[in-house]
C-alpha cells in the first residue's frame, strides 16, 4: 500500500468530521433579508429541527434536495446535523477508548502479574457481554446526552486496544532497555509511559479506524433504540428509527442516513486496512 493511498483514505475519512463541524454553517434557516452572498454559501437553508406539517413527506425536489420527513423537516439538513452526533460521538468514543485501552494495556504488560491479571479479568468481562447490551443498560440509567453516549461506548470499546498493546508491552517489558530503565531507578509510571508505551502503541493505532467504525455503528444503534441523544436533536440512528413508519412509501427518509452510515464505516475500515498494511 503506497503512502499516497493511505493519505487519500485518511482524507476521505476526515471529510466526515469536517462536514459535521461545518453543519451549522452549511445547513441553517436564513432570515428573509439575508444578503445574497450568505445565501449562496448556505446550500441547505433549512433549520434541521423546524417542522412544517404542510410539507411533510415530500420527495426530493429543487427546494428540499433530499425531501422532507414525516414532520416536514428537511432530510439533508438533518443528515448534516446528524453527523455532529454520529461522527463526533463516534470519534470521541474511539479516542477515549484508545487512551484508556493503551494505558491499561501498557500497564498490564509492564507492571507485573498482579496488574496484568486484574486488567485481563476486566477486559474479559467487558468483552463477554454484547456491547449494545452494556451500552443500552448504561444509557437507561444515565441522563442522555452525546457525552454520556461517547463515554458508554468507550467503556465497551477499550479492551481491543488494551489487548493489542498488552501483548507488545509484555514483550518490551522483558527487553534489555526496559530492564535498564528500571535499573536506572525509573518509576513504574515512567517505565510504562516513556519506555514501553511508545514501542507498544503501533498496533492500537492501526486498529483505531476500526474502533471508530464500531463506535459509530453502536451510537446509531443506541439512537435507533431511542437511548441516544434526546429529541429533537438529529442523529442518523434516530432518523432511521423515525423513518420506520414510512419505510415503503418514503425511501428518501431511510436511504440518506443509511448510506451515510455505510460510507462512514466503509471509509473507516478502508483507512484502517491502509494503515495496517502500510506498516
Amino acid at each position: 500500500m503506497t503512502r499516497g493511498r493511505v493519505q487519500r483514505r485518511l482524507l476521505v475519512l476526515a471529510l466526515f468530521p469536517a462536514l459535521a463541524l461545518l453543519a451549522p454553517l452549511l445547513a441553517r434557516a436564513l432570515p428573509a433579508d439575508a444578503p445574497q452572498a450568505i445565501r449562496a454559501l448556505t446550500p441547505v437553508p433549512f433549520d434541521p429541527d423546524a417542522t412544517d406539517l404542510a410539507t411533510r413527506l415530500r420527495p426530493p425536489d429543487g427546494t428540499h434536495l433530499l425531501g422532507t420527513d414525516d414532520l416536514g423537516r428537511d432530510v439533508l439538513s438533518r443528515l448534516l446535523h446528524g453527523a455532529r452526533v454520529s461522527v463526533l460521538v463516534g470519534l470521541a468514543a474511539a479516542a477515549l477508548a484508545f487512551a484508556a485501552g493503551t494505558l491499561l494495556g501498557a500497564a498490564a504488560g509492564t507492571l507485573g502479574p498482579g496488574v496484568d491479571r486484574a486488567v485481563l479479568v476486566v477486559t474479559g468481562v467487558v468483552q463477554a457481554f454484547p456491547a449494545l447490551v452494556l451500552v443500552a443498560a448504561g444509557a437507561a440509567m444515565a441522563p442522555p446526552s452525546r457525552w454520556t453516549a461517547a463515554l458508554l461506548i468507550a467503556l465497551t470499546a477499550w479492551p481491543e486496544a488494551a489487548r493489542l498493546v498488552r501483548a507488545e508491552a509484555l514483550r518490551l517489558s522483558a527487553s534489555p532497555y526496559v530492564e535498564a530503565a528500571r535499573a536506572a531507578g525509573a518509576s513504574p509510571a515512567r517505565v510504562v509511559l516513556r519506555h514501553v508505551l511508545p514501542g507498544a502503541i503501533a498496533p492500537a493505532i492501526a486498529s483505531l479506524p476500526y474502533v471508530v467504525g464500531g463506535a459509530v455503528l453502536l451510537e446509531a444503534s443506541l439512537s435507533f433504540l431511542g437511548l441516544g441523544v434526546p429529541p429533537p436533536t438529529a442523529s442518523w440512528g434516530r432518523a432511521l428509527a423515525d423513518a420506520r413508519e414510512s419505510l415503503t412509501s418514503a425511501w428518501w427518509c431511510v436511504l440518506p442516513p443509511a448510506a451515510a452510515l455505510f460510507l462512514l464505516v466503509l471509509s473507516a475500515r478502508k483507512a484502517g486496512e491502509a494503515l495496517s498494511e502500510s506498516r
Binding site: S175, P176, Y177, E179, R182, A183, A184, H195
Partner: peptide, 22 residues
C-alpha cells in the same frame, strides 16, 4: 528506586539493546 542508579549503577551487556531506541 533511589538505590538503582543512585547507589548502584548498572551497565548491560549489549548497549544496542539496553538503550531505548526512541
Amino acid at each position: 528506586r533511589r538505590l538503582r542508579g543512585g547507589g548502584i549503577g548498572f551497565v548491560f551487556q549489549e548497549p544496542g539493546e539496553a538503550l531505548d531506541p526512541v
